[in-house]
Amino acid sequence: MTKLVELEKITAGYGNQVVLTEVSLTIHERDFLGVIGPNGGGKTTLLRVIIGLLKPLSGSVRYFAEGKDRYNFIGYLPQLMHFDPKFPITAMEVVLSGIMAGNRLIRRVTGKEKMQALQLLEQMGVFHLRDKAIGELSGGERQRLFLCRSIISNPRLLILDEPDTFVDNRFEHDLYAILRELNERMAVIMVSHDIGTISANVKTIACVNRNLHYHRSNIITEQQLAAYDCPIQLITHGNVPHTVLQQHEP
């Protein structure tokens, strides 16, 4: 399998606080990796290191892409609510912002790219909102919009940080269908609190709790989680709706 990104002995954190210790992980083409773990365990930090937003304190990140390929290498869906909802930008512009890359700052958006943006909006069911300002959209609608933005560049690796927050049940179902379809042509890494839906949809699981435990299957048992020192409890597993309880620090 072709490698996309290789993390080697990554130690990362903010200021003096170390969040990840000596984490190694390789992402291959067509991977569908679910990332689980307790709050503050370093899930988002891991994603930020993979994307290149956070420089690790030690260790190396290697991307298997050169030159222009690097521009459309990663698609990123950040956690919601890290932007200003009053910012004057339309839904359509938000999606188109996913096209611009690198130093080509004066390039115009082509008609083909606009069509592509409209198609994506249609596919995600937010076509009618294209001229609305971002602040007029609900949380779920914004999430769909940001998904459009993250995939319009047709990246080779799609990274999603809790895409299922603020999303209604119907779209959550659609979302996983869309992600499985996207996975036909790109690798996907997804952080989620919902371990039940994760294990029903992903191919492999990584449990991040300061360290990283890679699990080569989408079925994970309580015993395995305990062995990984990952304080997440599985309540049910199967076709019934899942509930997950998180243990808190004593």
Partner: peptide, 16 residues
């Protein structure tokens, strides 16, 4: 506009 709206996303697009 894009950098003003979402600086971090612009960084992931390798915009200066």
């Amino acid at each position: 506009l894009y950098v003003a709206f979402d600086e971090e996303f612009a960084r992931t697009r390798l915009i200066p």
